[in-house]
Design a protein around this nucleic acid. Structure first.
Lengths: 125, 125
DNA sequence: CTTTTTGCAAATCCTTTGCATCTTT
DNA sequence: AAAGATGCAAAGGATTTGCAAAAAG
């Protein structure tokens, strides 16, 4: 556990805004001037493999990383890319429906809603 | 509506396996030897803007394109990337829950289940 | 000292773009 | 000629990788 590694994980745990790899890099650059983007990616992969962090992709945009492992879904702003958490009981019946009709061994699902965040909604008017 | 454009759209409508841009390119190359990948992407964008085709991304993999506009969800194989359709009533309550708790103007959602397709499931054993 | 991690640059993959060519009108 | 579509090759962005130097244990 190097200082860089610790800083990246801590940043992820403290920030609730699902940063991209580059945002993490830029946020930590001041404290760790020699930090490289590759190291950020390396460590993100380590965390993901360790099950500490989840990666989310939306369209062509950069992946966003989330250290909040609790069961929750995301609302994504299609204008600025912001991801906001929201609570909702896990949708279990879709997994059963999929298993029944596709023959897959289903072990998970992903659900997210799209819309305009309060800020972009206002600017949109 | 050029021959290339028509061929791409027709291929998408006839194939139910959600091909990637490259798969479309390779499938049509024999009939259109001069076809270029750029043209495939160009036309896919035209179709998407026209609302004839939908684009789906999963992780870092290539986008997959779907000309089936009916309401349906997808099961994705995490091993080989295959996407299979399945039917399920639209999940409307999550959009309401998200609107209520985030303040977003929600206009849609995305849901997909992950697992192993029958083929990969067998090989996995 | 042995292994892991870092940091840089180059490489890779997917997708887009610039531009000249070719249609089609 | 004007407008749009094509095809090539080069550019672009996000992520990964090779490898040498540095740090950790």
């Amino acid at each position: 556990m190097t200082p860089q590694r610790y800083a990246i994980l801590q940043y992820l745990m403290e920030s609730h805004d699902h940063p991209t790899a580059d945002e993490i890099y830029r946020a930590l650059s001041p404290q760790y001037p020699s930090l490289s983007v590759a190291t950020v990616y390396n460590n993100l992969k380590v965390f993901i493999d360790a099950g500490l962090v989840r990666e989310h992709t939306y369209g062509d945009d950069s992946s966003r990383f989330d250290a909040d492992l609790s069961d929750h879904y995301h609302a994504i702003c299609t204008k600025c890319g912001t991801m906001v958490d929201f609570e909702h009981p896990p949708i279990k019946d879709v997994e059963e429906a999929a298993t029944a009709s596709t023959g897959f061994s289903v072990f998970g699902h992903r659900m997210e809603v799209y819309g305009l965040c309060p800020t972009c909604k206002t600017m949109h008017a």
